[in-house]
């Protein structure tokens, strides 16, 4: 069965060639572009549209590291974002609390420097987690560790997005 990785002729692993992903995505988009099917049968029109939609969904999934990790786990029948699994390492949750508190304080104080500092700290952690994901997914094939790291990455992405949003809001009001 074809999956998102084989669709773009990529190996099914966390560490993928993003340039190749972009290139192969564009090839599929061009081949399935509606303009090429103006005079085609309605069946052909429909199937090209389905290919374009799937390719877009696949691209969005593989491009983003957290989504790619969630998808890799899903292919192994593991639901990383299960709503009934709320247990995470206490130290990690404590760190989340601290980041959230720093974000709240900096937002209230309208302190852009503090927010930028927080963002760079979190980006460093994101890079560390992604390196860890390459290790556990592609080298060790340790799905338990991979699930753990994936869940952490999803959390950090959310806080990162909130920090970026706060920075943007403050800058708009300068």
């Amino acid at each position: 069965m074809q999956n998102y990785f084989s669709l773009f002729q990529l190996p099914q692993q966390f560490d993928i060639d993003l340039a190749l992903l972009n290139t192969n995505y564009r090839v599929i988009q061009t081949e399935s572009h509606p303009d090429r099917f103006v005079t085609a049968t309605s069946a052909k029109k429909l199937s090209s549209m389905q290919i374009a939609t799937t390719a877009n969904e696949a691209y969005q999934t593989l491009k983003n590291p957290a989504n790619r990790a969630i998808y890799l786990l899903k292919l192994q029948n593991i639901d990383a974002i299960s709503e009934t699994n709320t247990v995470l390492p206490a130290t990690f949750l404590m760190q989340q609390m601290e980041w959230r508190e720093t974000l709240e304080d900096a937002k209230q104080a309208k302190d852009i420097n503090a927010l930028n500092l927080l963002l760079s700290e979190m980006r460093a952690e994101t890079a560390r987690l992604q390196a860890n994901l390459v290790d556990v997914f592609d080298k060790k094939h340790d799905l338990i560790a991979a699930t753990d790291a994936t869940r952490k990455l999803i959390f950090i992405d959310k806080v990162c997005a909130d920090v970026s949003k706060s920075i943007a809001t403050l800058e708009d009001n300068l």
């Binding site: 974002i81 709503e83 709320t86 247990v87 206490a90 949750l93 404590m94 999803i154 806080v159």
Partner: peptide, 10 residues
């Protein structure tokens, strides 16, 4: 302490 990865709640 608990967290929900799906929505990032802690």
């Amino acid at each position: 302490m608990v967290g929900a990865p799906a929505c990032g709640d802690v």
